[in-house]
Design a protein around this nucleic acid. Structure first.
Lengths: 151, 151
DNA sequence: CGCACATAGTGAGTATGCTCAGTACTATGT
DNA sequence: ACATAGTACTGAGCATACTCACTATGTGCG
């Protein structure tokens, strides 16, 4: 990763909270992605595989989009790349012919386990300065923001 | 913005804190960008214009990158688009012929003020559920994560 | 039944982030 | 002075997010 300067305060803005939130997320994603790239994964790919691995039933594209909290088009792109590498299989829905059912392939399941381990390690490293109470508090604060913007 | 389902817990992961951080930021950016797009701006563009407006001296591309906390290439892209619309001027540095000096044009200054007002309103709306102590606590928690990933 | 509307997914195009490689220039050390 | 190292920026190309428009299909109502 490229070396960068410290996050600077914007003198024209009295409230840089949101700026810090953006900046923190960009760095955290870069940090995690760098580790995941070594095993051919990424934050978006791990998240998608995690949902597929955890679901007892095959998921539709739509289901996956909602679980990931991203637009349908974004899911198409991620699934395209996972399918190209043979990690995910798209099968036509037996009843609803508009839809696909997604499942992890055997290779996909293996890759998911590796990537999940790397991901867990990265997340633990990123949040090593926070104790259980801090994490809970952070979750609460983030939830307040989500509520405000999802109205 | 597209309607989406509630952020779902990933059953395979015991710690979804980071997932929530990513998801919250994606939504917050979408929320803010939607408001800014109405006056032809965006989060990245406002941030860049803010730094230029606040600086008493013209900035180099490099300075701006560091202030924004993004890669040099990202700054090139943002400045390209601002320059194309006549909001920012790139002038060759009088001494260091590798560098440019960036300044807001008159139009750029006007647009910045409009966008800044919209931005402030959006940020206030997004964080309306947080009191001063909450904001300070959130800032601290984010700073802990940034320290952990910037080592 | 048949029309209207809704839903599932993707193509096209955009924005914002990244890396790596390359060009042009500056700075430094012997 | 000259080679070497470092810096400033951009081109090329990728990843992940978005919207809008489109096709194909399902659903529901008169």
């Amino acid at each position: 990763m490229q070396k960068r300067g410290v996050l600077m305060k914007a003198p024209g803005s009295s409230d840089i909270l949101v700026d810090e939130l953006f900046a923190t997320t960009v760095r955290l994603r870069a940090f995690t992605d760098a580790r995941l790239r070594e095993c051919g994964a990424s934050v978006a790919r791990v998240r998608a595989m995690r949902m597929l691995a955890a679901s007892p039933e095959p998921l539709r594209m739509r289901d996956l989009s909602e679980m990931l909290g991203v637009a349908a088009r974004t899911t198409t792109t991620v699934v395209d790349s996972l399918e190209r590498e043979g990690l995910v299989a798209r099968v036509r829905h037996p009843v609803d012919r508009r839809a696909f059912l997604l499942t992890l392939t055997e290779v996909g399941r293996e890759r998911h386990l590796e990537a999940e381990a790397v991901d867990r390690e990265a997340l633990a490293a990123a949040t090593r300065g926070l104790d259980a109470a801090d994490r809970e508090r952070l979750r609460e604060l983030l939830a307040v923001i989500r509520e405000a913007v999802e109205g």
